[in-house]
């Protein structure tokens, strides 16, 4: 289907972009890499009157070393992330996760900000207008039923981006700006856990930067992604593990999961399971169990919920052991 006509705005200055967002607040969509927005607009999931192309905003591009850590402009491509020497050295987990996104060509286009803001996904939602008519629409768009959990009133579309679990493990913060102010929040606080209104972002706000704190630098880690094909696919379940060791012990272990809930989630209570008197294998299993319990997959994608939950368990255990072996 064609994209519904809109007016394209391509400001060169961030301040102009923010003013534009404020002016057309609620009736405007932000276009970064476009790899999710444009297919969605062709499916008529979004029909804004205005589209804000942020490609020319230099202020939100690039990777910069700062006193506090690393600052990544929201409009930095995933290709740039996976090829950044600084990130490879200090935050290899993010690089590993970025490398698994879709395909190399998609990563030439897609941005880290777009990945953080990626719309939640569901087989009942990411469909053409005529397809959605045939299913009577759904709670996320134009309808009153959630087909994957029909008894309730909540949308269960799955958050399906690869880099946010890595960013959560690295305790990333994001900078959010509007025309008059700027705020900085931990990424964890950005997501709501609701499939339809999945992020805490006001209509006049833009995610401008992502900060990786120095404290998270040099964490070891691993990202394990379930996909059917080795390329192109969104994750069907995935887990990121970040680990800091001290004298062979686990000083700090963080685990986050994605594609199995309406938000990427840090698995709570992990630290209480480490360094107890048990084998590393046993510890990894207990942590994996915790991660699997955190996952609430539903029939939003291919492969069954029970399978995806089981994979969270298997992958978590593997990723923990792998991170520990590094």
């Amino acid at each position: 289907m064609t994209v519904k006509p809109f007016q394209l705005l391509c400001p060169r200055e961030l301040s102009d972009a923010l003013a534009t967002l404020e002016k057309h607040s609620g009736n405007i969509r932000v276009l970064a890499g476009g790899t999710d927005l444009l297919p969605s607009m062709r499916q008529r999931l979004f029909e804004p009157e205005y589209v804000l192309d942020i490609r020319q905003l230099r202020e939100i591009q690039g990777i910069r070393l700062t006193e506090q850590g690393i600052e990544i402009g929201a409009f930095t491509t995933l290709h740039a992330i996976e090829n950044s020497d600084e990130l490879k050295r200090s935050y290899p987990l993010l690089v590993e996760a970025a490398k698994t996104v879709a395909s190399p060509v998609i990563r030439n286009m897609a941005t880290i900000g777009g990945n953080v803001c990626l719309d939640t996904r569901c087989l009942w939602y990411n469909q053409s207008l005529s397809w959605r008519k045939s299913c009577g629409f759904c709670i996320k768009k134009d309808g009153n039923i959630c087909h994957v959990a029909p008894g309730g009133t909540k949308c269960w579309a799955a958050f399906s981006a690869d880099t946010p679990p890595a960013l959560l493990c690295l305790q990333a913060e994001i900078e959010i700006r509007n025309a008059s102010s700027s705020r900085r929040v931990t990424l964890e606080k950005f997501y709501t856990g609701e499939g339809d209104n999945y992020r805490r972002l006001q209509p006049d706000e833009l995610v401008t930067h992502i900060f990786l704190p120095r404290g998270s630098a040099l964490y070891g880690g691993a990202y394990r992604k379930l996909r059917i094909r080795g390329s192109i696919d969104y994750p069907l379940a995935a887990v990121a593990v970040a680990l800091k060791r001290k004298n062979g012990d686990f000083e700090d272990l963080r685990i986050a999961i994605t594609a199995v809930n309406p938000a990427p989630l840090l698995v709570a209570g992990v630290q209480s399971l480490v360094n107890r008197a048990m084998t590393r294998e046993r510890m990894a299993e207990e942590i994996a169990e915790l991660a699997a319990r955190t996952a609430k997959p539903l029939t939003t994608s291919a492969l069954t919920p029970e399978y995806r939950r089981e994979i969270i368990r298997v992958f978590t255990k593997r990723a923990v052991l792998e991170a520990a072996a590094d």
């Binding site: 394209l8 391509c10 276009l31 476009g34 790899t35 444009l38 297919p39 589209v51 192309d53 490609r55 290709h79 190399p104 060509v105 998609i106 030439n108 286009m109």
Partner: peptide, 13 residues
Amino acid sequence: GIPMLACTLLAAS
């Protein structure tokens, strides 16, 4: 010089 999807770019961009 970078490969991209022409179906996923606005011409005006």
